[in-house]
């Protein structure tokens, strides 16, 4: 009998604590599949965020170092500078990456740190109960923007991935989505490419993944994928923002 699916070797056999329909489980699996396929278990280190994915170490069977909220890219910098031969990736949510950790993220990217960030954008603070995130969309209601995010009061959604795409130290910057199986496979390809860019020593690589949070969006898991495609992807268009390897091919 042909095996068509199996649990990745470095995904621990532990039930996910994530809510039904949450995108983290999918992204965790993609990451673990890639670590297996690329044979990285023995030299990769993950820095999870403060947020829903803080417990990533319960699932990733690789070396993991917890971070204070937002400090992932600074910790990754210290690790990579001390151990340039290791592969270091941060796994961060929108608050971690684009609010409290904006400085750490932008400066690591701008220095061209040879690290990778997987940035999971679900437009809310999940773990703390659905408060407004820097990426919360205009009009979106959250527990701290109960009247809907207004540009006059709360300001505009922050597109940190676009910002990082303008920085010379960034080598590969892309945004993907989990809205459909095809997009999930494209996400896997993007993460693979980001890790390859790091391993080639080209600079900072970032994959923003638009991911559903049905619990805090207050929609069903099924409808959350529609919400993802119809609302999130409108505000945050998917696609590659920067790829220095593509430029090399052109020239």
């Amino acid at each position: 009998m042909k095996t068509i699916y199996t649990r990745p070797k470095c995904l621990k056999p532990a039930p996910f604590h994530y809510c039904p329909g949450c995108g983290h489980s999918i992204i965790h699996r993609l990451v673990c599949e890639l670590i297996d396929e690329m044979d990285l278990q023995g030299r990769i280190i993950c820095i999870p965020p403060a947020g829903c994915a803080v417990l990533a170490y319960n699932y990733f069977d690789i070396d993991v170092c917890e971070s204070a909220h937002g400090r992932g890219c600074a910790i990754a910098t210290g690790m990579k500078r001390a151990n340039p031969e290791k592969i270091i990736f941060t796994y961060q949510g929108d608050g971690d990456m684009a609010a409290i950790g904006t400085a750490e993220t932008l400066h690591a990217a701008n220095r061209g740190e040879k690290i990778t960030s997987i940035f999971v954008n679900n437009a809310v603070y999940g773990m703390t109960g659905g408060q407004m995130a820097p990426t919360t969309m205009l009009g979106q209601k959250t527990s701290t923007s109960p009247y809907g995010r207004s540009p006059e009061v709360e300001g505009h959604p922050l597109k940190i991935t676009e910002l990082i795409g303008t920085l010379p130290g960034a080598a590969y910057v892309t945004r993907t989505s989990l809205a459909t199986p095809a997009k999930i496979m494209a996400t896997k390809k993007a993460i693979k490419k980001a890790l390859e860019v790091q391993m080639a020593g080209l600079g900072y690589s970032l994959v923003e993944v638009l991911s559903p949070c049905p619990t805090n969006w207050k929609v069903s898991p099924k409808d959350s994928f529609i919400y993802l495609e119809e609302k999130m992807e409108k505000e945050y268009p998917i696609g590659v923002m920067k790829d220095i390897t593509a430029k090399k091919k052109d020239s």
């Binding site: 170092c65 971070s67 910790i75 910098t77 210290g78 500078r81 001390a82 151990n83």
Partner: peptide, 19 residues
């Protein structure tokens, strides 16, 4: 570092790898 906060977290990262 870009700040004291970043610097001490860089120290933390390096220390976690044994430096």
């Amino acid at each position: 570092g870009e700040s004291e906060i970043a610097s001490i977290n860089m120290v933390l990262g390096a220390a976690a790898t044994g430096a």
